[in-house]
Design a protein around this nucleic acid. Structure first.
Length: 231
DNA sequence: AGGGTAACCCGGACGC
DNA sequence: TGCGTCCGGGTTACCC
């Protein structure tokens, strides 16, 4: 294990924020940016607390508190930057941006010609959806994961945008999903409609949920409720 | 432009 | 019990 010390003398926390799946801690003269990927976790605790297994970075504050970045699978990333432009420049809009109207979303979908699931996962198209939320949102909107984006009409787009917003809000309300031992305290896994429910009955029609591979990602959907249209 | 694939990482699940 | 193998999450790189 290599260790080094990064000193941030005299700097204090000015703000805490989020853009897409990135967390930002704005300091007096620089910005800490975190991406937890799937196994990352941040803890605030007294500096004298024992370190935990897989703690990858710790920040000691003069107040006696410590911020620990724990990441079992080392997938997470941390940057110390002077501005976030380079990291955030290419990101798509936030799903909850009021400027993202159903009409605008429809236009974005029509400009592309790509299977809807990988498109929704593409952070440059729309920022914030991961595999779980994409499957859940497509189910709620009754759209097949392989449906090509430009074939979705205004109503489809409006339904999908609503489903995305609803699904993300539900996940946040549940403190996320704790499907893995690395997540803590989340409850959203108890609200999954399709994700990791292959073979189990669709909550809407009772037909078995199907699982396929789309762009190397496990993809769960109801073949009866989410039919490919116009094919 | 879109897609397919591999890489990163590692603990748990699974099969033998 | 002890192996080996596969899996999956988000993202980028690279190839066709």
């Amino acid at each position: 294990m290599e260790t080094f010390q990064a000193l941030l003398p005299g700097q204090s926390v000015q703000d805490i924020g989020r853009r897409a799946k990135f967390l930002t801690i704005t300091l007096s003269e620089s910005i800490l940016v975190f991406h937890l990927r799937m196994s990352g976790d941040l803890r605030m605790e007294p500096s004298e607390s024992p370190l935990e297994k897989h703690d990858r970075m710790v920040l000691d504050f003069t107040s006696g508190w410590r911020l620990s970045f724990n990441d079992t699978r080392k997938f997470g990333r941390v940057w110390l930057v002077y501005d976030t432009l380079a990291i955030f420049a290419a990101l798509g809009p936030e799903p909850d941006d009021p400027a993202l109207t159903p009409a605008k979303f429809h236009e974005m979908l029509r400009e592309r010609k790509r299977a809807i699931k990988p498109l929704l996962l593409d952070q440059h198209f729309l920022a914030g959806l991961g595999n779980i939320y994409t499957d859940e949102a497509l189910f709620r909107a009754s759209i097949h994961p392989l449906q090509s984006s430009e074939t979705l009409d205004e109503q489809d787009a409006a339904r999908l945008l609503e489903a995305i917003r609803f699904t993300l809000a539900s996940g946040i309300e549940s403190n996320g999903a704790s499907i893995d031992w690395v997540y803590r305290g989340g409850d959203f896994q108890n609200h999954f409609q399709v994700y990791q429910r292959s073979g189990k009955p669709c909550p809407r029609c009772g037909q078995p949920i199907n699982k396929i591979l789309v762009g190397q990602r496990g993809t769960h959907f109801c073949p009866n409720c989410q039919k490919l249209k116009g094919a």
